[in-house]
């Protein structure tokens, strides 16, 4: 019990962030028109690619003889980057099509 309490005490900032972000996530997305659902899902998909930072830390902390951390970290870095880069590029491609008309008018 004490173990849990001290963990919660140590992580209280993080727990506050979790609670607020849940509300914010719901609030932000609540007013999205259904037209944008697919790009939004794709954009959100790219944002959770932030997990790549964890992969970078794993890689960067690995001692030269820790082959498990090195190989899994390397793999995780590749997969995470795929998620981030692919996600943002796909979303941009979708949105580019929405905006094509307006951009032509401007130029």
């Amino acid at each position: 019990m004490e173990n849990w309490l001290s963990w919660i005490y140590l992580q209280q900032e993080m727990i506050y962030i979790v609670a607020l972000m849940i509300l914010l996530g719901i609030e932000v997305i609540g007013r999205v028109p259904s037209v944008l659902h697919t790009p939004l899902m794709s954009g959100a998909n790219a944002i959770h690619g932030v997990v790549i930072i964890g992969a970078i830390i794993v890689m960067g902390k690995a001692e030269p003889d820790n082959y498990l951390a090195l190989s899994l970290g390397f793999l995780a870095t590749i997969l995470g980057t795929l998620n981030v880069v692919g996600g943002f590029v796909v979303t941009d491609r979708m949105l580019e099509m929405f905006k094509k008309k307006k951009k032509d008018e401007k130029s």
């Binding site: 992580q11 993080m14 962030i17 979790v18 972000m21 849940i22 509300l23 914010l24 996530g25 719901i26 932000v28 997305i29 609540g30 999205v32 659902h37 939004l40 899902m41 959100a44 998909n45 944002i47 959770h48 932030v50 997990v51 930072i53 964890g54 830390i57």
Partner: peptide, 22 residues
């Protein structure tokens, strides 16, 4: 949580909440 990294936490939870609502 593991790395005490607020960027990962915000990004992850935002998507978790927004994705669930979606």
């Amino acid at each position: 949580f593991l790395y005490d990294n607020k960027a990962m936490l915000t990004g992850g939870i935002l998507v978790g909440a927004a994705g669930t609502l979606l």
